[in-house]
């Protein structure tokens, strides 16, 4: 598994999209989520994010997500793009 090297972002604040910001963590996954559908789908979104991080081999990251009603596949794409941009060691 690996750690994020640098701060990076992906996505936008537009409707149906998600804005994702990643940076170096403190030895674990530190995930914060702001979503218009937090009540209904917050857990599912967190699960989707962790799935992507696991696929990317990342377990040391600070990640902030602002969700604007994005579908799972969009959130996952934005997380993957941000992680790739952040680089890992």
């Amino acid at each position: 598994m690996g750690a994020i090297i640098r701060t990076a972002t992906a996505g936008t604040f537009e409707s149906s999209d998600a804005y994702v910001e990643v940076g170096p963590g403190r030895g674990s996954i530190d995930l914060s989520l702001e979503s218009v559908v937090e009540q209904q789908f917050g857990e599912a979104i967190r699960r989707a994010v962790r799935e992507v991080l696991s696929e990317c081999g990342c377990d040391d990251i600070e990640i902030r997500i602002v969700d604007r009603g994005a579908l799972d596949c969009v959130i996952k794409a934005r997380v993957e793009a941000a992680v790739r941009r952040g680089g890992m060691n």
């Binding site: 996505g11 596949c73 969009v74 794409a77 934005r78 793009a81 790739r84 941009r85």
Partner: peptide, 9 residues
């Protein structure tokens, strides 16, 4: 980079 991941997903 972000677009091709999004299109793939």
């Amino acid at each position: 980079d972000a677009a091709r991941i999004l299109v793939r997903n």
